[in-house]
Amino acid sequence: MTATTQSASTTAAAGSGVRARLSGFFNQDVVLALLVVTLTIFVWLVNPRFLAQRNVLDMLNNSSYIAVAAIGMTMVIISGNIDISVGSLIGLLATISGQIAIGAQDGGYPLWIAFIVPLFVGALIEAFIGFLVAYLRIPSIVVSLGMFSILKGALILWTNGVWIYNLPDDFMLAQQAPLGVPVPIYFMVILTILAALWMKYSATGRAIYAVGGNREAARLSGISEKATIMKVFIINGVMVGIASILFATQFNAIQSTVPPGLELFIITASVVGGVSILGGTGTVIGSTLGSILLHVIRFGMQFVDVSQYWLQAVQGILILVTVMVDLLRRRRQSYSGRG
């Protein structure tokens, strides 16, 4: 890929070189960032209170756990798979975390266990999904659809839908705000940067693109497809674990239910962030921008007085538009490749 771009820019005439650089600049991440800015300005013009410091922080804070989960989802989709079960998993892990925190309050073990266990449980459950997908060759859509309802039912069986109250104050990680910025935003920024660097420069990160982009080529270049898919799902489990802690510690109570449509929100963030649903392309910076965009839309709807009930319809349209743009771009690329 890099080699092609280099040879193209060296052989191309000066004029088309500039154009290539321009179109390189206008990649999906930049387009998304511009979209976020444009939309923000639009809502701000209608209602200036939109850019009040508190609202902006609130918006980013709400985007954070979605963005963290979307990092994992992005890797899963780039590898050519999908995970529907994350909504249930976040609900389950948040409840586990809360129950452990309650236990820690009574003494016996330190509180940090409540922050560690969900990461391991998440990794374990996703490892199981990854195993079924990679080694037993069951389509990820079916495995994760099944897991979605298994986890959801298990959570109801376990908690009977009772909310968790009286959580210890130290547990409220997401409510703390060093330097005036809520903790989840730090998580979002740092994890996005780390994941982006890892995806770009590590061998495993490159392997994920290879497996999703061209399975046969990946195999021929000595990449183990199965091991890569396993790793992707395990990382996804850890990310979902972190997201569930940010989710669990937002409020003073944990609902012990599965937030409806949460997995769709996360998938939308990834897809809107430029992750091609056909696998092989996409970035985690894009998916983080995607989740911020979704929250600008969500909060913006309130500020321009559009009913929140339309949010899910907007999500559906966003997915469709992004997918169509992606398909059209691919078609054009394959034409120019032929010419």
């Binding site: 999908i82 899910q312 319809a313 559906g316 997915i319």
Partner: peptide, 18 residues
């Protein structure tokens, strides 16, 4: 089909809500 109907899973439910 998977992506199309996932998008309309959100869209049609969103229409019902809206």
């Amino acid at each position: 089909p998977l992506i199309m109907t996932l998008a309309t899973l959100a869209l049609y439910r969103g229409m019902a809500l809206g």
